[in-house]
Structure formats: structure tokens, C-alpha cells
Write a protein that binds this DNA or RNA. Sequence first.
DNA 1: TTGTAAGCGTTATCAT
DNA 2: ATGATAACGCTTACAA
Lengths: 339, 339
Amino acid sequence: MNNTTLKEIAEQLGISIATVSKSLKNYPDVSEKTKQAVIELASQLNYTPNSFAVNLRTKESKTIGLIIPTIVHHFFSNVIKGILEEAEKRDYLVIILQSDENFELEKKQIKLLINKRVDGIIISLSNGTGDFFHLNEILSQKIPLVLFDKIAKIVECSKVMINDQKAAYDAVDYLIKKGYKKIAHFRGAYIPQNSIDRFLGYKKALEDNQIEYNPSLVYDCDNNNDFEDGYENAKKLIIENPEVDAIFAVTDLVAIGIIKYFNEIGISIPNQIAVLGFSNWFISNVISPTLTTIDQPGFEMGKKSAEILFNEIDLKRNNLPVSFQSIEIETKLIIREST
Amino acid sequence: MNNTTLKEIAEQLGISIATVSKSLKNYPDVSEKTKQAVIELASQLNYTPNSFAVNLRTKESKTIGLIIPTIVHHFFSNVIKGILEEAEKRDYLVIILQSDENFELEKKQIKLLINKRVDGIIISLSNGTGDFFHLNEILSQKIPLVLFDKIAKIVECSKVMINDQKAAYDAVDYLIKKGYKKIAHFRGAYIPQNSIDRFLGYKKALEDNQIEYNPSLVYDCDNNNDFEDGYENAKKLIIENPEVDAIFAVTDLVAIGIIKYFNEIGISIPNQIAVLGFSNWFISNVISPTLTTIDQPGFEMGKKSAEILFNEIDLKRNNLPVSFQSIEIETKLIIREST
DNA sequence: TTGTAAGCGTTATCAT
DNA sequence: ATGATAACGCTTACAA
């Protein structure tokens, strides 16, 4: 750990630390000659500023924090990618944490990040998150915060999301227009707003098309294993409601579970029954039949979240007022073989 | 940013900063009475140590860096998960970077991490990585380093990997024992050692079973889009070598591409031709037919890498000698419907 | 143009 | 048991 310091350079050159610092930071009030000498020696000694000291002085860490519910997840992976690319551009580093859908862990991780004095935080809330006091702690410290995907409407900060309700509505509306009459919904858990919204979109599309909403056609997928949920519920559905001709699944993974089961027992998709997913995971394009789904653009959401965050960090640095944004990223229906 | 400092507590209590610090850190030489007073006021004021100052003082950041080639990747996602869980246990934070298979980016990111003075670094090398000077820079700074999966044998540091050659050998040997006679290999690029080793394992298994190795049965998948590679090569193979009865693919994604094509043109798997993948991605268990593959345990690899790294960090902290480990994680053949 | 010195918030040594 | 003080390495206002 032979790290060169300003002091060493100063001593070797017989000048003061201040002058060395100024030379390296291109201050105007230092002679070209000394500046060159400093720069040369610095690069010779392979000098890099001690970031700990810089942090302490500037009160900035050039680091942001990111908390997501699940790492092994196609959508979130894409979000991460979008965020990392924006951070890269600005030479910012990203600390990533996984809350594992656990409220307590999320709280602890936020504490860790605040403690670490990151310059900003991006979060997608866990399904277990019950209240938002822990978020207020971030805000009261004036740390820029962006929520994405799993957001909390009440929290006063910027947000990046999709319109789950509209997306679901469009999907179901498409199914109806295509001629499907008896449409089931495999819905998600009751806690994250997303699955509620997707359910509401489903319901509204039915109603707007004069199809009576039938609660017994709604199946719960809340065992935290979407694939299994889809598979098992498909089994049930085929017995309980054999006349259903289409299923709108809350997630591609649920849809894949459904397809898997139907493939196994020889039910033909979409001839006997159509399946429509949500998210446009990679897998939905390679399964047989390929899955009609809604594209949820994770990369763009990550990118946008990061852009907003870095913008707020800049504003804060310059003591300018920030106004929170709520951005809705466009989704689109990807029509494939399963409908 | 109303952050309480030791100084404030000291002033309010009319004692010295030193005493406050000691109280909070449970030093033996401070009276129970003052200690209690300090602790109480500290929690009242919601005191947390300024990590910048702590870092500067202790020369530790309680942070490690992780560089991986691709974020959106089932295997690497699992690795990340394993690493994050180990870090979580120790209240360590993890900075994650994506090299995007780009040598220059990898170099830059290592510089950033060294600069940030992380306590340790874990890397899976990019396919573009040509030499290892940038890694030596890490070592010369005495920063603990663990390489995993895409490793460089010459670099003197701990390593966590699988035995690609053996895994491939076992897979192909299994195919042969199962009665397949004409086995093609869809191989990966020529740069990462992994795909070379898998190819060698394939070749050796043939030779050990007295099957002549035939180079024209080896197809290159090096367009950086495994799925497409598999699909397109399957198309070629069926024309050029219609008598092939099994394919060993370098990756599940390649295998999925193959399956996709065969499903489309109505070639039955495994009856007309068998397909065997590598990695055991989630997708391989839900596709039809389900894919026989080799389980490459990302989670364990991440976990093990982190354990080794944290151990080295501890040793270094206590000025103890470290000896580098090379750990081989067990893979296993997962037999499913495609063979 | 250059240097002095204060300060960022801790930790740790050495007096008292 | 408590406190004064130096040190970590850098930035920057101010003095020379």
C-alpha cells in the first residue's frame, strides 16, 4: 500500500502541499513551470488522490445505492444494467443490495446506505414493505431518492414506473377484440400495487366491453414461486372452468407455468386456450409457443431512474431547487403465437 | 444533513471528544456513568459515525468491488446473489460493475475500484481480456483478489471455478453410453478458457470411447448471441450433417436455440436428435422438452468467492500471511427429457 | 505566485 | 477516569 500523497510530492519538490494540490486541480494561480513539474512527478509516482480524504473534505462519495427485491430476475437485471451504464458515464459507482422482498432487511439496508453517505438512492420497494418511515429518513437527510416500479405514491420523491393498469387493460382488451370471450386472470399477491393495478386493468377491460366480471375466474398466484403458481392454477382451472378460452397472467413466469402444463397434457395453445403474459422476459420469446406479453422496459426504467437521480444530485450540489418528477415509461403489447 | 458528530455530543455533555468516542466503542477505561450518559444522548441525537472519517482513519472502506462481464445473465445473477448474501452477513457493501466483455472497460473499472480503496475485489474476466497487468496492479497494492469462472491461471490469487473439461467430458460420455453415436458440438468462442475446455472435454470423451473426432461436426457459436447461434447452426447442421443424433451445446442458450429450431421444423427431440446444454439456467427446466444440462452452481461460486475474499481481508487486517486457494466447485449432470 | 493554516470527523497515544 | 493532541490526506480561504 505504497500510496503517494500530496505531502510526498510536496517534499520531493520542495514546495508546499497547497501548491501541489492546486497544480493538480488546474488552479489558475500557479505558474506553468511548477504545475508541469508537479504533474510530471505525480504521474511518475502514480499518484491518485485518497478518496477517503476527498470524501471527508467534499462530503461527497461519488457513489449511489440501489436496493432491489430480487437479483435473479430478468426485469431487475435489465434495470441494473440501465443504471450501471448511466453511472459509468459519470464515473459514479453503484452499491447494490437485495432486499429479498423483506421489509426489515430493506430498512437495515437503507440505514447502511445512509451511513455510507451515498450521494443518492434508487429503490424498488419490497413486497413486504408496510410503511414508509424508512424512506422519510432518506428524505429528511436530503439524500436524493428515486423510486421505480414498486413505488409508494405518498412518498415525496421522484418516481419511474409503468402504467400497470393501462397495460393490463390494453392486453385484455386485445384478447376480447381478438374474439376471446371467457378470460381468466391469474393475479399476483395483494400487496404490491402492481398486481392490484394489473387486476384492475383486467376488470375494467371486461366491463368496458360488456363482459361480466366473474371473480371465480381469478386465481391467486402468491406463493412466491410464479412458475409453480401458474402450473398449479392451470391444473385447477382446467377442472373448475374448462370453458375458459384465454388467460391473462400477471407475469411471464406464471404464463410459462401455464404453458408448461398445457403442453404436458396436450392442450393446444392458442387454439383451445390462449395465454398472455406480462414483462416480456427473454424466455417468452423462446418458449413454444412463443408468448404474447407486455414489454416492461427494464433497461429504460433503470436508465431514466439514474438520469433523474444524477440530475437531482447535481442540483443539490449547486444548491438549486429540485422538483420531483413522476415518469411513466411506455409499455407495449408484443403479440406472438400464444394468442 | 443535520449529522451529529462526536464533538456535539462532547459539548452538550461538557466532556471531551475522546471520552465520547471511547464510551461509544466500549473502552474499558471509562466510568459506567459517563458511558451511559453518552450512549443515551447519542441515540437521542441519532448519532451515526461519519463513515468518511472512519474510512480515512482506519484505512478500510467495508466495501468490496465486483466486476462481471454481463449483468443480464442467469448464471452471473446467481453469483451476485451468493456474494451479496455473504457481504450482508458481515455488513459489507458491494460495488458492482459490468465490464460488458470489454477489456478497456475492465481496466478502467479496476482503476476506479482501487481508487475507491475497496477492501477486496472479485472478478470474472471479460472475453476481451488480453493480458493481466491490470490485475497485477491490484495485487501490488496488496488488495485481496478472487477470480471466478473466467479466471487467469497465471495470476497469483485465489480462484473459484468449475472443471469445464471434466463436466463436458461427463456429459458427452453420458450421451455415448446412452447410445448416441454421432455427436456434434456447438462450441463457444476461442478466447475464454471455458469454451476451450468444454471443447476439449467433448473431444476427449469421444476418443476415450473409440469414436473418431470429426472437426466438421464442430460448429462455432461466437456471434455473442448464443440463442441465435444455436438456431442458425442447427439449421446448417441439419443440411450438412443430417445423420447426427445428438448435440452437445456449449451453453443452455445455444441449446434453447437448437430446440427452438427443431420444434419449428418438426424434428422430434430426443427421438430424432438429442440436445444437451450447459449451465442449468432456469429456462432449461421449463422449455419443452426440458433440457438435459450441466448444473453450474452460480450461487455457490459467488458464496465461496466471497468467503475466501473476506477471509483474506481478515487475515490482512491482522497482518497474517494469506495462502491462495483454488477451489473447484462440483458440477452435476441434470438429466431431463431432451436426451 | 506561493505558502500557511484551519478544518472535515474520527481514532489512538500519552498525559494528567 | 478523563482529556489534550496528533494524525489520517485533502481542499481552500487567506496571508505573504
